[in-house]
Simulated assay, not measured.
Amino acid sequence: MWRNSASAYGLTARLLHWSIAVLILGLIPLGWYITTLDYYDPGYRLWPGLHRGFGVVVGLLALVRIGWAIADRAPPLAATLKPWEKLGAHAGHGLLYLATLLIPLSGYLVSTAKGDPAELFGLISLPALWSGGEQWQEFVAGLHETLAWGTLAVVVVHAAAALKHQFLDRDGTLARMTGRLPR
């Protein structure tokens, strides 16, 4: 089933969710590793390019995911959730959607801050829309890193809440996004 049902997310939403999750969980530590490289490190040319390319992939998948979420409404939250849990779920999802757009955007701004295009996998070149120089690059790099830390915090809370609801509350919350519903 490609579309969401009343009790679970469909295959499309699940594929988008888990693809974005895996990419983010790989990009965050890769981004931190990149900050340790100096110009003469053999990975200095390879890793930033991969980080940049997969960051753009996250942004594009996020746009598709948001469009899909508008077109194919999510199943309702478990009826057993307390009002503050429902509020937390909606806020967390909103923050994650926002982060999947803002982090790639800020990464693009870091890459193009000095007016150079952003090269993606050696195949595509995204032009710089605005050149702000070194101070601008430092500012958006700081913003990019802050957004990554904040996103990691939200991801940890999101995952912990899903695990809590699945294994302690046994309300099937995690099963809705894995496609393994209890019988």
Rank of each mutant, 00 (worst) to 15 (best):
residue 114 K to L: 15
residue 96 L to I: 14
residue 40 Y to S: 12
residue 106 S to C: 09
residue 100 T to F: 10
residue 122 G to M: 10
residue 62 A to F: 04
residue 65 R to C: 03
residue 62 A to R: 01
residue 110 V to H: 00
residue 81 L to C: 06
residue 63 L to A: 14
residue 112 T to F: 01
residue 102 L to H: 04
residue 108 Y to L: 07
residue 84 W to E: 12
residue 66 I to W: 03
residue 43 G to P: 00
residue 84 W to T: 12
residue 93 H to W: 04
residue 94 G to Y: 05
residue 78 A to S: 14
residue 94 G to L: 03
residue 54 F to W: 14
residue 114 K to E: 13
residue 124 I to E: 04
residue 98 L to E: 03
residue 113 A to L: 05
residue 39 Y to R: 15
residue 37 L to K: 04
residue 92 G to R: 01
residue 39 Y to W: 14
residue 89 A to L: 09
residue 103 I to P: 01
residue 47 W to V: 10
residue 35 T to W: 03
residue 103 I to R: 00
residue 115 G to A: 06
residue 42 P to F: 08
residue 121 F to R: 10
residue 44 Y to S: 15
residue 125 S to D: 10
residue 95 L to G: 15
residue 56 V to S: 02
residue 118 A to K: 00
residue 105 L to V: 15
residue 104 P to K: 00
residue 57 V to E: 02
residue 74 A to D: 14
residue 60 L to P: 04
residue 103 I to V: 15
residue 79 A to T: 12
residue 131 S to E: 13
residue 55 G to Y: 00
residue 83 P to K: 08
residue 41 D to S: 15
residue 76 P to N: 09
residue 97 Y to I: 05
residue 36 T to R: 13
residue 110 V to F: 01
residue 58 V to H: 00
residue 100 T to Q: 03
residue 67 G to M: 09
residue 114 K to A: 13
residue 105 L to C: 07
residue 127 P to E: 05
residue 131 S to Q: 14
residue 90 H to R: 15
residue 76 P to W: 06
residue 86 K to W: 06
residue 36 T to K: 10
residue 93 H to D: 12
residue 75 P to W: 05
residue 58 V to E: 01
residue 61 L to N: 01
residue 86 K to T: 13
residue 104 P to R: 00
residue 54 F to V: 10
residue 52 R to Y: 10
residue 84 W to R: 12
residue 38 D to S: 14
residue 56 V to A: 11
residue 122 G to E: 10
residue 88 G to R: 00
residue 37 L to H: 07
residue 61 L to E: 04
residue 64 V to L: 15
residue 36 T to A: 12
residue 112 T to N: 04
residue 79 A to Y: 06
residue 87 L to W: 12
residue 51 H to G: 07
residue 130 W to G: 03
residue 118 A to H: 00
residue 39 Y to V: 13
residue 99 A to P: 01
residue 54 F to N: 02
residue 40 Y to F: 15
residue 126 L to Y: 02
residue 95 L to I: 13
residue 75 P to Y: 06
residue 131 S to G: 14
residue 59 G to N: 06
residue 94 G to C: 08
residue 109 L to V: 08
residue 117 P to Y: 04
residue 117 P to T: 09
residue 92 G to C: 05
residue 93 H to I: 10
residue 49 G to K: 05
residue 102 L to F: 08
residue 59 G to V: 06
residue 86 K to Q: 15
residue 104 P to I: 00
residue 133 G to P: 04
residue 94 G to A: 07
residue 131 S to P: 02
residue 128 A to E: 05
residue 74 A to H: 12
residue 43 G to R: 11
